[in-house]
Nucleic acid binder design. Structure first.
Lengths: 235, 235
DNA sequence: GAGGCTTGAATACGTCGTACATGTTGCGTT
DNA sequence: AACGCAACATGTACGACGTATTCAAGCCTC
């Protein structure tokens, strides 16, 4: 019938409007959304609304029950590991808390991942690691934060992937979100902490030398520093 | 038109058939599912099939592209933290690997969670902890594995929740899955390791006394033991 | 004549609208 | 107060058209 504006896909459009609204808390837990209401508000067919609802339901953001409507679930029920939920929450009002939660998760996971990576990393991965560590060194001075961030994210992604654990590997996006969020949010002007840069280089060394103990404890220093840094910046 | 057999909801029925099939590897990555084919196979309308596809897509199990169909994604793309994906994989053929991955994740997360719990647990949570620890002691002998499992799961759930970190709290189901899987799969006959039982009691003590260091290192012993146990049982 | 580029038709998903079934909720009746 | 009925919102089904992507045939160029 019509093929108006739309980005690419009505489904994505409505989802990217409703999802962030819910995770932002615009609809308090227990709120009821009616299908036909959403139909009108976003000017789409029932099909689209229902599919969006089904996706939100699969993220445990809402629960759909007959005769009552689509009720918003409390935050404790949400699938907080869903990449989209993480993105939405990082873009919303409780971004500080989200950043904290994710950093704590990092502090638990990354040291163990680094220890495993020291035992399992392939030569190629070791090379990538040192390459990115050197890249961090090269971009650590003179306001090259964007370039530094790229290497930082890539470094941690390799560590997580090299751990050989699929659950760890899947946290690459989380770490990327945290690091990006920190760069954007925090000190856009100050250069990165030189001590942190050095630690990354030493982690790369430890992995290359298959020293699991050292890789783990060095990484623990990195994430401890990250948490301390967060304490300074965030309320 | 028809409302035959069905459990409760065609949507859930088809999803519980397709999801496990995909995670089990019945459709190798790159396989193409056509909508009308699924329609016929499960005797449902397009509406239902499309909603199921949308949910599977939100789990990154499949990707739907025009003119080509619904293609199955490689396992690296899957949202392995989705509770349903975890359940499906634990019920499927690569359950051993899944159990391993999740146990490694546990070994990284739980000690840190215990450390935080020691600082943040409410008196009620401390009480629950000791209660379940004592429950484990009481049911640790004489083939009461089912009852023991209940206390074990509850114990770790309280720890994760008391950590005050929502990401940790959400891993309660994961731990439950691992512990249940271990009980079902492994030694259904032998009583639990007495050393592990004692460690749980001591963790409860440490949390009650707000000794974060001790709670963390004791929990580390628990999960290290769990991993060692897994090495004995699994290939 | 061989190769690459453009154009067109076939195809399977995307969206729409309507109709009916089903389970719930809440109210009115007994 | 207990029961049952009617209204309501979601669940499911069916049919139609829009749309993008792919594949192949046909044209042009070298």
């Amino acid at each position: 019938m019509d093929k108006e504006q739309g980005g690419q896909g009505q489904h994505a459009r409505v989802l990217d409007a409703l999802g962030p609204a819910i995770t932002a808390g615009d609809y308090p837990p227990g709120s009821v959304l009616r299908t036909d209401e959403l139909e009108q508000r976003y000017a789409v067919s029932r099909t689209v609304v229902r599919e969006v609802i089904r996706v939100l339901e699969s993220m445990h953001l809402v629960a759909s029950r007959r005769r009552v409507g689509v009720t918003v679930l409390p935050a404790e029920e949400w699938n907080v590991y869903d990449p989209r939920v993480i993105r939405w929450r990082l873009a919303g009002p409780d971004r500080p808390r989200q950043l904290r939660s994710l950093t704590v998760l990092r502090s638990a996971v990354e040291p163990v991942a680094a220890g495993l990576a020291a035992r399992l990393a392939t030569p190629e991965q070791c090379a990538e690691l040192t390459s990115h560590a050197l890249g961090m060194v090269a971009t650590s001075r003179g306001r090259q934060l964007a370039e530094y961030l790229v290497h930082d994210v890539a470094f941690h992604r390799v560590i997580l992937r090299a751990s050989g654990n699929e659950m760890f590997a899947r946290l690459g996006d989380v770490v990327a979100g945290v690091l990006t969020g920190r760069t954007q949010h925090g000190v856009m002007f100050a250069d990165p902490d030189p001590a942190a840069v050095t630690l990354h280089v030493r982690v790369a060394e430890a992995v290359r030398e298959r020293d699991a103990e050292r890789a783990e404890s060095l990484t623990r220093e990195i994430v401890t520093g990250a948490m301390a840094e967060l304490d300074v910046l965030a309320p």
